[in-house]
Design a protein around this nucleic acid. Structure first.
Length: 678
DNA sequence: TAATGGGGGTTTTTT
DNA sequence: ACCCCCATTA
C-alpha cells in the first residue's frame, strides 16, 4: 500500500503507520530517522491528509528538503512538495509575515542576525553610559548570548549570569537595563532578531483566537532532532497542539549537542510526563555503519558516566572494511599531510571525494588543512564557521534590502553610513538623528527620508554626499518595478561604497550579484533579506585551485554542521584534549558530556572508514619555536583505543617516516621536548 | 572632535 | 577575521 513499506523494519513501519495521539520515536544514529520520517509523511498523504496540513519542523532547511525529496521520489507525485517544512525559525518567520498586522508587527519588518543584535546591544550600552565605571560588563557578544539564553530557556537573568558570567554577577541591574532598552529599540525600529521570531510565534499560538487558528492549520506536526529543542520551542509546540494531540517527536538524547543554545534533551526524555497518552517507539538497528565503526561508537558511549547511550546494533553486515585507525602525528602540518595522503589513497580505491569528510570541533581547526588541500589541488567545500552571509559586504547589501522595505531600520543605516568615506560612528549617529521627526521617530516611508535628506547631508562630509544620496535614492521603491531590478539598482548604488571600503572589491562585487539574482520572484526585498539571514548558503572557501574532477569535492565540516549527514570515510582531526573536547567547554560537567556526545556524533557519521588524528605538538607563534605538547583526547580511552588500530606516523627524522603499531616512545618525546630548551 | 590606520592579541559550536 | 587600543591626521 505504501511505497516505503517493503524496506522498513518492523519498528520503523510501526512508527510510520502510527495513527493516534502523541508519538515519540527514539532513534540512534543511522537507524533510519529520515527514512522513517519520510515514510510517515508518505503514509499521512496516503491517508488523504492535505500536504499543507502537515508541519515538518527540522533543524535545518536541508533536512526538511531531504525528507520531502524522499517522499516525492517514493510517491512519484508532487504533493509532497506542498508539505509545510522548515526550521522553527523559518516557519516562525513565515507565520509572522502572514499575520503581521494581527500581531502588531509592521509590514516589511526586518530580521537581524546575532551579529546585528550584538551591535545593537553595544550601541545601547554606549547610549546608556553604563560602559564607564569600575565594574566590568560583559562585552557585546556575551550580552547577546546572555539575552538569548534568558529568553530561550525562560530562566531569570540573575540565574543565567550566575552560571555564564559569574565574574560580573553584580551587574545584573545594568544588564537588565540594557535588555529592556534593547527590546524597546527593536520594536521602534521594526526589527526582529532570531529570538523574537520565536517569541512572537509563541505569543501568537498562546493567544486565544489567533492561537486556535494557527493550531487548526495543521493536522500533524512532526519534529526532527527533538533532543535539540529549547524551552521556547517547546512552548510553541505545546501552544500549537493545545487542542490536537497529533504530534510526532523524533530524536536521540545521545546526540544532544546544542546545550549552548539553550537546548536540552530533557524535553525528549521527559515527554512521557508532559504529553498525555504518549507512545514511544525505539529504533536501534543501525543501517549506516560497519560493525568496526559501531564498536568505536559504542565504546565512546560506554564511557559516559550517565550511561544513557543506547547500544547500536548492526542491521546488515557491511563487509570488507578496514578497522578504524588512530593516528599519532607530529604536529598540525604533519596531520594535514597525512589526511591529504589518506584522502587521495581512498580516492584511488574508488571512494569519491564527496563521500569523504574531514570533521573537527572548531571551524578554524581546518585552516592548515585547507592550505594543504589547495596546494595539492584537492577541491573541497567547507561547512560551518564563517558563512557567505556573514561576510561584511554581503551584510551591507542585506542591510540595504532591509532598508528598502523599512526605512526605520537604524541598525542598517548605521552600518551603511559608515561605509562612506569620512563617516564613522559619530557622524553616522548624527545623520540618523537628522532623519528623525520632532518626536524622535524615524520615517516609515521613503518619501519622508527624501524630505529630510538635506539635513542628513549637513551631518555628512562633502566627499560622501554623492554616494549617500545615490544610495538613498536607490532604496526608494518604484511602482511596478520588479524586485530583482530594484535589487540591482541598490547593488549599483552600493558598488562605489564597496570600492571605497574594501581592499579587494572585485570578488566582493561578484558575490553581490549572486544575492541580487536570488531576488528573482520574491515578493519583497525584506523577504529575501530575511531568508538569507535565516538560512545562509553554506560558504565554501574558494582556496582550492582548478578542481581535480568536476562535481566532486571533499567535505570539510564542523561536527555541528555534519549533524544528520553520513559519509563512506570520515577523518576526525585535532582529537587532542583542549581542542576536542574544547577547553572552553570544560568549566562545567555538563559541558564535558556535551563534548562527548559531539565526539559520538563525529564517529557515527562514518559508514565504513574511520580515522582519528592526534597531533602531538602545537606551535603557538609564527616566529620562534614556541610550542606545547598535547594529550590525546580524553575520549580516546583505553576501551575506545582497544577498538582501533593505533599507529604512530611521526617522522623520526625530517626525511623518513615510520609506520608502526608501537606505543608512544616517552623517552624520545621527553628528549625532543628538552632539546627545545637549550 | 572624529576618523583612520597600524599593531597585537584572540578565536567553540549555530538558528 | 575581528576586537581593542593608541597614534596620527583632517
Amino acid at each position: 500500500m505504501f511505497a516505503f513499506q517493503p524496506e522498513l523494519n518492523e519498528r520503523q513501519r510501526e512508527a510510520a503507520a502510527f495513527d493516534g495521539g502523541p508519538l515519540r520515536v527514539l532513534a540512534g544514529p543511522g537507524t533510519g530517522k529520515t527514512t522513517t520520517l519520510a515514510a510517515r509523511v508518505d503514509v499521512l498523504l496516503g491517508r488523504g491528509v492535505a500536504p499543507e496540513r502537515i508541519l515538518l519542523l527540522t533543524f535545518t532547511r536541508r533536512a526538511a528538503r531531504d525528507v520531502i525529496g524522499r517522499v516525492r521520489a517514493s510517491r512519484g507525485d508532487d504533493r509532497a512538495r506542498r508539505v509545510s517544512g522548515g526550521t522553527f525559525h523559518s516557519i516562525a518567520h513565515r507565520t509572522l509575515r502572514h499575520h503581521a498586522p494581527s500581531l502588531g508587527l509592521p509590514d516589511g519588518f526586518g530580521v537581524i542576525d546575532q551579529v546585528d543584535a550584538a551591535d545593537l546591544m553595544d550601541l545601547i550600552r554606549g547610549e546608556l553610559g553604563v560602559v564607564s565605571g569600575a565594574r566590568r560588563l560583559p562585552k557585546k557578544t556575551t550580552l547577546a548570548s546572555l539575552y538569548s539564553r534568558v529568553v530561550n530557556t525562560a530562566t531569570p537573568l540573575g540565574d543565567v549570569m550566575g552560571e555564564m558570567t559569574p565574574w560580573c554577577a553584580d551587574a545584573v541591574g545594568d544588564v537588565s537595563d540594557i535588555f529592556s532598552a534593547f527590546v524597546a529599540r527593536k520594536r521602534s525600529l521594526g526589527l526582529l532578531d532570531f529570538d523574537d521570531l520565536l517569541l512572537f510565534w509563541r505569543a501568537a499560538v498562546r493567544d486565544e483566537r489567533l492561537g486556535a487558528t494557527l493550531g487548526a492549520a495543521y493536522d500533524h506536526v512532526l519534529v526532527d532532532e527533538f533532543q535539540d529543542v529549547n524551552q521556547l520551542q517547546w512552548d510553541v509546540l505545546v501552544g500549537l497542539r493545545r487542542h490536537d494531540p497529533r504530534l510526532t517527536l523524533i530524536g536521540d538524547d545521545a546526540q544532544a549537542i546544542y546545550g549552548f543554545r539553550g537546548a536540552s534533551a530533557r524535553f525528549l526524555l521527559d515527554a512521557p510526563q508532559c504529553l498525555e497518552g504518549l507512545t514511544t517507539i525505539s529504533l536501534d538497528l543501525n543501517y549506516r555503519s560497519c560493525e568496526a565503526v559501531l564498536r568505536v561508537a559504542n565504546a565512546v558511549a560506554a564511557d559516559a558516566p550517565e550511561g544513557f547511550f543506547s547500544v547500536l546494533r548492526e542491521a546488515t553486515p557491511i563487509t570488507g572494511v578496514a578497522t578504524p585507525v588512530l593516528e599519532h602525528c607530529a604536529d598540525e602540518r604533519h596531520q594535514s599531510e597525512r589526511v591529504a595522503d589518506r584522502v587521495l589513497e581512498l580516492y584511488e580505491q574508488g571512494v569519491a571525494l564527496r563521500h569523504q569528510a574531514v570533521l573537527f570541533r572548531a571551524a578554524h581547526h581546518s585552516a592548515d588543512l585547507e592550505l594543504e588541500l589547495a596546494r595539492r589541488r584537492i577541491p573541497f567545500v567547507k561547512y560551518g564557521g564563517l558563512r557567505y552571509l556573514e561576510a561584511a559586504h554581503v551584510k551591507d547589501l542585506v542591510a540595504a534590502f532591509r532598508l528598502a522595505d523599512n526605512p526605520r531600520d537604524a541598525v542598517a543605516w548605521f552600518r551603511l553610513l559608515q561605509r562612506m568615506p569620512g563617516v564613522g560612528p559619530a557622524r553616522a549617529r548624527r545623520a540618523i538623528d537628522a532623519l528623525r521627526d520632532d518626536d524622535g521617530h524615524l520615517p516609515t516611508r521613503h518619501a519622508d527620508v527624501a524630505d529630510r535628506w538635506p539635513r542628513v547631508c549637513d551631518a555628512l562630509p562633502h566627499q560622501s554626499h554623492a554616494m549617500s544620496s545615490g544610495l538613498a535614492h536607490a532604496l526608494e521603491t518604484r511602482a511596478g518595478e520588479p524586485v530583482e531590478l530594484h535589487a540591482e539598482r541598490i547593488r549599483l548604488a552600493l558598488a562605489p561604497l564597496i570600492l571605497a571600503s574594501y581592499d579587494d572589491p572585485a570578488p566582493r562585487l561578484e558575490d553581490l550579484g549572486a544575492l541580487v539574482a536570488a531576488c528573482a520572484g520574491a515578493a519583497r526585498l525584506s523577504d529575501v533579506a530575511a531568508d538569507q539571514t535565516l538560512e545562509p548558503p553554506a560558504s565554501t572557501g574558494d582556496l582550492a585551485g582548478p578542481p581535480l574532477l568536476d562535481d566532486d569535492w571533499l567535505v570539510l565540516s564542523t561536527v555541528h554542521s555534519a549533524k544528520g549527514l553520513e559519509f563512506d570515510a570520515v577523518h576526525v582531526i585535532h582529537a587532542a584534549d583542549g581542542n576536542f573536547p574544547s577547553d572552553m567547554s570544560l568549566t562545567t560537567p555538563e559541558g564535558l558530556e556535551e563534548e562527548r556526545r559531539l565526539f559520538y556524533v563525529a564517529v557515527t557519521r562514518a559508514r565504513r572508514d574511520l580515522r582519528i588524528y592526534v597531533p602531538l605538538r602545537y606551535h603557538h607563534h609564527r616566529v620562534g619555536d614556541d610550542h606545547s605538547w598535547a594529550q590525546p583526547s580524553r575520549f580516546l580511552s583505553d576501551a575506545v583505543r582497544a577498538t582501533m588500530v593505533e599507529i604512530d606516523v611521526r617522522p623520526v627524522h625530517d626525511e623518513t617516516s615510520t609506520v608502526s603499531a608501537a606505543p608512544l616512545d616517552g623517552a624520545a618525546l621527553v628528549a625532543e621536548q628538552l632539546s627545545q630548551l637549550w
